[in-house]
Design a protein around this nucleic acid. Sequence first.
RNA 1: GCGCCCGUGGCUCAGUGGAUAGAGCACUGGCCUCCGGAGCCAGGGGUCGCAGGUUCGAAUCCUGCCGGGCGCGCCA
Length: 587
Amino acid sequence: MKAFLHAQLLETWQRLHTEGSLPEVQEERIEITATRDAKHGDYASNLALALARDADILPRKLAEQIRDALPEHPDIQRIEIAGPGFINFYLNEHAKSEIIDQILEQGDQYGREPAGSRGRVLIEYVSANPTGPLHIGHGRGAALGSCLSRIFAAGGYAVECEYFINDAGRQMDILALSVWLRYLELCGEDFAFPRSAYQGDYILDIAADLHREHQRRWHTGADTLPPPPTSPAGAEKEAKTNANDTHLDLLIEHAHEQISGEDWASIRTTACNTLMKRIERDLEGFGAVFDNWRSERELQNSGQVEAVLAQLEEAGHLYEREGATWFRSSHFGDEKDRVVRRSNGQWTYFATDIAYHAEKLNRGYDTVINIWGADHHGYAARLRGAIEALGENPNRLEVLFVQFATLRRGEEQLPMSTREGEFVTLHALQQEIGRDATRFFYVMRGATQHLDFDLRLATQKSADNPVYYVQYAHARICRLLERAGEGEATSSPCDLSELREPGEQALQKQLAQYPDIVQRAASERSPHHITHYLRNLAGDFHAYYNATTVLVDETGVRQARLRLACAVRQILNNGLELLGINAPESM
RNA sequence: GCGCCCGUGGCUCAGUGGAUAGAGCACUGGCCUCCGGAGCCAGGGGUCGCAGGUUCGAAUCCUGCCGGGCGCGCCA
């Protein structure tokens, strides 16, 4: 209906333009919105206000001219000019109740665009380092990516989801080192475990497996280990960090002397695979589904990094300085140039990432979306710059930054830090509050907002908890339809003009907005529009249900009300589906 | 210091340049002989951080300032 009115306005304007009484107009400038207040009709347009200047006519006069020129239509009861020059459309009852038949006819397809009709999108998300289990910080990215992929699919995009496995680089060496040191402890060695190595129990588990399988094969005396740094009292934090980093490097070097490169690689691979399996399992349990798992190591071995650097070199965007190779990212909007090859000959992560993004773009997606934590925002400019330098349109890459989530239980703040091994894992969070509530809470705020995740609220089984509120509305309708006999509600269309109560009008209007909400959630990459909508719809239903008896004796009224309830259930179901949340039949 | 994000009832947050700025929580008072009370209804509570500007119209766009978060490595 909204699209229809938009077309009518455009057509009418163009006709008046051809007749010479109005100037030209661009399609985007004609807006029509569902009204917030029923006093303003069902739909309203502000075009007379917006375009009065161009037309050189007073807004109200312009509005009248357009109203008079609009063709009559059986769905439109009347058109009014209000306020400074709004054009308000009032639909007749029949047009409003059509929505119910449409919803029941299309079922779970209602609100969905034809698959693949809007282009191809790749969403890369989570991509956490395999150095520990996923924690609640990763959870937010996982929820956002997973919900967005479902919303995009509903919006008509062909969507693929991808996880980039950071299985190369120094992090992996630190991981292997952490495992090896724990292994030495299991061999009976006694020494101070480095503070900046990975502390978590999962490291111990991997070490125990290795110890069981390989016995004392990689054993070496603790007395040969490089001594830990002695940090003088009052030393700067930064100096301490550097000292710890250097110590780790010495330890890694030492390990290389003690065991063969092959064995070291084997420890690294075992640790990485074990953690990746755990990550995959956690994501699967969370409902985050991936189509592709791309390995950084494989990418590096494929020769793509050399190729892409050669391409940049050829285009003159690289230069040497102080033994390193730099990319001239400052020419492409970054604040300074960035190293792509270190003076020790190794690529930086950035170099690999350029190759990775070049690959993604070459695979032919219209849009490539990355979901990153807010702490990475400074990184986007150089990546965009590299894409531009490669002759691609940098706008095909879109980076969504998700702000941090803090976790609390009532007043108590819960800490999280991978290195210290003290964090709430995503798995533990789900165990405690369930997948549905976890997903809903993660996406109910805009991604740019800091999220205050309250475990106490999320575990409450009451109306305070929005997940239960929405699910309860669904369960309630299911029970109602069961009681009435399913057949009655889903049978052939009945006379919906019986729906005259204010609550029934409100519900029909709310239902009609669903497709717009889905489109908006997709175009703004904002699943929270869905959570808000569902809460409102559930609220309207609860209010209606409390005020009006559905199962009355008059057959016509009863059938119409059941049919309305059935349509509400369908939309609750469709909306929850977009969030990957269950729509239970009973609770 | 520079860059990005955020300042909206006591709290957590919606808000697409539009009509009287909205929810939920908390608070106060009501509603089950009734389709699920895991629910509903009513009420109080606001300088939309501050100051300019653009506009017929600004919480929304622009500039400056104030406050909070994050980032500013030959780490990933």
